[in-house]
Design a binder for these strands. Structure first.
Length: 791
RNA sequence: GGGCCUAUAGUCUAGUGGUUAUGACGUUUGCUUCACAGGCAAAAGGUCGCCGGUUCAAAUCCGGCUGGGCCCACCA
C-alpha cells in the first residue's frame, strides 16, 4: 500500500460526502438494543415536512441537541436518537391547498389525504438529505417515524379512547374558539393575541317606554346577536336603568338591562352590550346570567340570516355597512380609534370568533395542580422556562378542544347513533381506523345499526403529545419502550412550551401518571445580525442551503455550538469564518504531527520521561476534559466548546507546540520521544473532544493519523475516557509561569524588531519571575544562549 | 396589566463574593518563523446600566429605578 501523503489543505466538500456515506453504509450510529449500557433517549422534535425551505434557525436548533447525542454516545451510553417528521395537520393541508389551488372540500377526504401524504413525503426526502444527513446528524435511520403513519395514528387513537373511558375526554356543545379562515375549532394554545387598531363606536339604544342610553362597542356587526345590556351594580348614573328593557337599534328587538361586577365603569359609557359571542366575557356572562343564544355569524366568517339585509356580508364589510346605517338613522354618536388585543389564529392571523358547536375536549382545568407538580419533577434547561409552563397552566381558561374540522389528520374513531345520538367508540383492536370508511361492528344500545361517523380529525398536538410513545415504540416493541420511557431528553424551542411540552406532560400524566422525560432542553432562537427575529415577510431570513454553499458543514456546526441553550443568538457570519479558521488550525496541527506518528514511543514500545511542559499540558488536557464533560452534562454546550477551544488554541497551539519544537528538531532522542508522545496524546484527545462538534474533519483526521493504531472504524465510536492523565499541580504552576516568561521574551524580541525565531545572545530575567527548573525550556524554546537573572 | 429573562471595552461575549475582569471580531504595531498568510506575536481599549443596601470585601447577593427582549392577558 502506497504511503498516503498528508494533504496540505482539506477538501471539505469531498470529505463531507465521503464520511456521510461511510457513516450511513457502516451504520455507525445504529442503536443497539442488546447493549447493556444505559440508554440515553431523545424525543426529537418532528420537523414540519411542509416547509419548503430550511433556515439557519432550524439547522442550529437540530444540531444543538445532536451534540448531546454525540456526547453521550462517546460517554458510555447507548444513544436512542430517532429522526422524525410531522406531516400531520394543518401546515401540510394548507401547503397542498395552496400548491394545487384547491380547497379541502373539493375532493373526497381519502383522496385529499393521499395528496397530502405524497407531498409530505417529497419534502421529507429533501429534508432528510439536506438537513439531517447533510448536517452530519447522527440519527439511526432505522428508527424513523412520522406522525401520520398508521402506528402513530393508532397510538393517538388509543390514547383518546383510554381518556374517554376514564372520563378525561368528553364531547360537548360549547362555545369554542373558531378560525373563520381554516373553518375549524381551535385550542387556546393555537390562538395568539395581537394588538390591532379598531374603532370604538358610541351608539344609542332606545329604552322601552322612552329615553335612550349610550353604549360603546367595537363590534357593531354583532348587534343582531345582542342578548343583554350590563351596567355596574354600584354605578349611580345607571341605577334606575336596571330591570328596564333596551331596544337594539336597526334590528328592533328587546334586551334586558342587568348588572355585573365585572363591568368597567370607566370604559366607554360604562354600559356594555353582550353578544353571543364577541369575546370570552360574553361567554362568561352568557353562562352566568343564563342568557339566550343568538348566533349571527357563519363558520366562514359572514353574517347569517339573523342580520337581515346584511346577511352574507363578511365582518369587515358588515361593520361598515351597519355603521353607515346607524349613522344615517342617528344612532351613531361618535367613533374613536382604539387599540385592542385580539386573539388570532396563530397560523393565518385571522381574528378568531366564538361559535357554539359540538366538539371533543380533554379535561385540563381539573388537572392544573398536577401538571405543575409534574413539571417540577423534570429538569428544565435553562431552569426558568419551567415557569412559563406553570404560568400558562395557571392562566388556562378552557379545557383542551381536540377536534378539528379539517381533513388531513388523525380521524376521531367514533360514530354517533342516527336514532338516539349515542356515542359509539371504535374497538381498540380495529385501530387505526377512519370512521368515514369503516362501519361499526356492533349495534347501538337502542338497537339501531345506522350510524353517523365523526368527520373531524384530532388537533395535531393530540398526536404530537404522544411522541415519547411513538418514538420509543410503545406498540411495536413494548419491551424496549419499557426500558426507554420516560425518555432522557426532550429538546424543543420555547415558543411551543404551551403546546408541545404542556400537552405531552398532560397526556403522560393522565395516561401513565408519569413524567414524559427527565430533562428538557430549550433550543436557541436565531435572530438576524441586527438582533431581530427572522421572518420571510421581513426579508431577513438566512437560508441554510445558501450558507452551506459558502461554508463547510463543520463550520456551520461550529457556529451552532456557540449558542447558549435557551438563549437568543444573532446570526453573525464572522462566527463561520472563525469556524473555518479553527478547522484549518486543527488540520495543520495534525499535519505537523503526521511525520512523527510512526515514532510514537507508546507504539514502538519505548520508554518516555515527561518534562515539566509535558506534565503541564497533559494536566491541562485532563482539566479541560473534566470541565468539558461537566458542562455537557448540564447542557452548557457552548461553554464546553469554549473550554476546549481555549485549551486547544491558546495553550496547545500557541505555547506547547512552540515549547517542544526545539526538542523534536533536536538531537536528544529521549527528549524528542517524550515530546512526541505527549503531543500524540494531546492531538488525539483534541480530535476526540472536537468530534461531536465537527464530525467530518475529525473523522478524516482520525483515519489519516490514528485508525491503524486504534482500530475502531469511526472516531465517533470512541470513548472520551480512552486516556486519562494525572493532574500535577506543581507542573500547572510552572507551565503557567513558563507561558508568562515566553510572552515577555516574545515582546522583547518584537520591540527590537527581531523575528521570534531569531537567536538571542543574552536575555535578562527578573529574579521574581525566574525558576531554575524552567531554564532549559526557556532557552530552548526561545533560542537564548545565555539567560541572566537579576533582582 | 401580570410573569420571565437581560444590561460587562467600538461590537459580541466569559465570569454566581476575594490579588492586574475572559475570549473573539475590529483597531494599531512587529515578524517573508522550517504546522498554519483564511498565519504568528504583541499593544491599546472597560466608571462591569443608574441609585441604595448586605459584607472586612460586590461585575457577582438583596431592593429600587431605567433601557432592551420574550411569554401571557376578556376591558366591551
Amino acid at each position: 500500500m502506497a504511503k498516503k501523503e498528508f494533504p496540505k489543505k482539506p477538501d471539505f466538500r469531498e470529505l463531507e460526502k465521503k464520511w456521510q456515506k461511510y457513516w450511513s453504509d457502516k451504520k455507525i450510529y445504529k442503536f443497539n438494543s442488546k447493549s447493556k449500557k444505559e440508554i440515553y433517549s431523545i424525543d426529537t422534535p418532528p420537523v414540519y415536512a411542509s416547509a419548503a425551505h430550511l433556515h439557519v434557525g432550524h439547522a442550529l436548533h437540530y444540531t444543538q441537541f445532536e451534540f448531546m447525542a454525540r456526547f453521550w454516545r462517546m460517554n458510555g451510553k447507548e444513544v436512542y436518537f430517532p429522526p422524525c417528521f410531522d406531516n400531520n395537520g394543518l401546515p401540510t393541508e394548507k401547503y397542498v391547498e395552496e400548491k394545487y389551488g384547491i380547497s379541502k372540500g373539493d375532493m373526497p377526504r381519502n383522496k385529499f389525504r393521499k395528496l397530502c401524504r405524497e407531498e409530505a413525503a417529497k419534502v421529507e426526502k429533501d429534508y432528510a438529505n439536506r438537513a439531517f444527513k447533510g448536517l452530519g446528524h447522527s440519527h439511526d435511520w432505522n428508527l424513523l417515524y412520522t406522525t401520520i403513519e398508521p402506528n402513530a395514528q393508532k397510538i393517538s387513537q388509543l390514547a383518546f379512547l383510554k381518556l374517554v373511558k376514564q372520563k378525561d375526554a368528553y364531547r360537548a356543545k360549547e362555545p369554542v374558539l373558531w378560525c373563520p379562515h381554516h373553518q375549524t375549532a381551535l385550542a387556546q394554545a393555537e390562538v395568539e393575541s395581537k394588538a390591532r387598531n379598531t374603532t370604538l363606536n358610541y351608539l344609542y339604544f332606545d329604552l322601552k317606554g322612552g329615553g335612550k342610553i349610550e353604549i360603546a362597542t367595537t363590534r357593531p356587526e354583532l348587534l343582531p346577536a345582542c342578548v343583554g345590556v350590563f351596567v355596574h351594580p354600584k354605578d349611580k348614573r345607571y341605577k334606575k336603568l336596571v330591570g328596564k328593557t333596551a331596544i337594539v337599534p336597526l334590528f328592533n328587538y328587546e334586551v334586558p338591562i342587568m348588572t355585573d361586577e365585572k363591568v368597567d365603569r370607566e370604559f366607554g359609557s360604562g354600559i356594555v352590550m353582550i353578544c353571543t359571542f364577541g369575546d370570552t366575557t360574553d361567554i362568561e356572562w352568557w353562562k352566568k346570567h343564563k342568557l339566550p343564544l343568538k348566533i349571527c355569524i357563519t363558520e366562514d366568517g359572514k353574517l347569517n340570516e339573523l342580520a337581515g339585509k346584511f346577511k352574507g356580508l363578511d365582518f369587515r364589510t358588515a361593520k361598515e355597512a351597519i355603521k353607515d346605517e346607524l349613522d344615517g338613522k342617528g344612532y351613531l354618536i361618535r367613533s374613536e380609534p382604539l387599540q385592542q388585543e385580539v386573539g388570532m389564529c396563530w397560523r393565518c392571523k385571522t381574528a378568531v370568533e366564538y361559535l357554539v358547536t359540538d366538539q371533543w375536549f380533554i379535561k385540563t382545568l381539573k388537572y392544573k395542580k398536577q401538571i405543575i407538580s409534574q413539571s417540577k419533577k423534570i429538569k428544565w434547561n435553562p431552569y426558568f422556562y419551567r415557569k412559563r409552563l406553570e404560568d400558562w397552566t395557571n392562566n388556562l381558561g378552557w379545557d383542551w378542544c381536540i377536534s378539528r374540522q379539517r381533513y388531513f389528520g388523525v380521524p376521531i374513531p367514533v360514530w354517533y347513533c342516527k336514532k338516539c345520538g349515542k356515542i359509539l367508540l371504535a374497538d381498540e383492536k380495529d385501530l387505526p381506523l377512519d370512521p368515514l370508511y369503516k362501519k361499526p361492528k356492533k349495534k347501538c344500545i337502542c338497537g339501531s345499526t345506522q350510524f353517523i361517523p365523526d368527520e373531524d380529525v384530532f388537533d395535531t398536538w393530540m398526536t404530537s403529545s404522544m411522541t415519547p410513545q411513538i418514538a420509543s415504540q410503545q406498540l411495536k416493541n413494548p419491551k424496549l419502550y419499557k426500558r426507554i420511557f420516560p425518555m432522557s431528553l426532550r429538546p424543543q424551542s420555547h415558543d411551543i412550551i404551551r403546546t408541545w411540552a404542556f400537552y405531552t406532560t398532560l397526556k403522560s400524566y393522565l395516561l401513565y401518571k408519569s413524567i414524559p422525560w427527565k430533562d428538557v432542553m430549550i433550543g436557541t432562537y436565531v435572530l438576524d445580525p441586527k438582533g431581530k427575529g427572522m421572518h420571510k415577510s421581513a426579508g431577513n431570513v438566512i437560508w441554510l442551503p445558501d450558507l452551506l454553499a459558502k461554508y463547510p458543514v463543520d463550520a456551520v456546526r461550529y457556529w451552532a455550538a456557540s449558542a447558549g441553550v435557551g438563549e437568543d443568538l444573532p446570526f453573525k457570519e464572522k462566527e463561520l469564518v472563525r469556524g473555518v479558521k479553527l478547522l484549518t488550525k486543527l488540520w495543520n496541527v495534525c499535519r505537523f504531527f503526521d511525520p512523527y506518528k510512526k515514532d510514537i514511543p507508546g507504539y514502538k514500545g519505548g520508554k518516555i520521561k515527561l518534562k515539566i511542559e509535558d506534565k503541564w499540558i497533559l494536566s491541562r488536557l485532563q482539566q479541560t476534559k473534566n470541565t468539558y464533560k461537566k458542562y455537557f452534562e448540564s447542557y452548557k454546550i457552548s461553554r464546553a466548546r469554549k473550554e476546549l477551544e481555549m485549551f486547544f488554541l491558546h495553550e496547545l497551539c500557541d505555547f506547547y507546540l512552540e515549547m517542544i519544537k526545539y526538542r523534536i528538531y533536536g538531537k536528544d532522542s529521549a527528549d524528542a520521544d517524550s515530546a512526541i508522545w505527549t503531543l500524540y496524546k494531546c492531538v488525539f484527545d483534541s480530535l476526540v473532544l472536537w468530534s461531536p462538534f465537527i464530525p467530518h474533519i475529525t473523522e478524516e483526521l482520525y483515519h489519516l493519523l490514528f485508525k491503524e493504531y486504534h482500530g475502531k472504524e469511526s472516531i465517533h465510536l470512541l470513548n472520551f475516557d480512552y486516556y486519562r492523565y494525572s493532574i500535577d499541580k506543581k507542573s500547572l504552576e510552572l507551565g503557567k509561569k513558563a507561558c508568562n516568561i515566553i510572552a515577555e521574551i516574545r515582546k522583547y524580541k518584537q520591540d527590537k524588531n527581531m523575528s521570534l525565531g531569531a537567536e538571542l545572545e543574552t536575555y535578562t530575567l527578573k529574579k521574581s519571575k525566574h525558576d531554575p527548573k524552567l531554564d532549559n525550556l526557556i532557552k530552548g524554546a526561545m533560542r537564548i544562549k545565555n539567560l541572566k537573572i537579576k533582582n
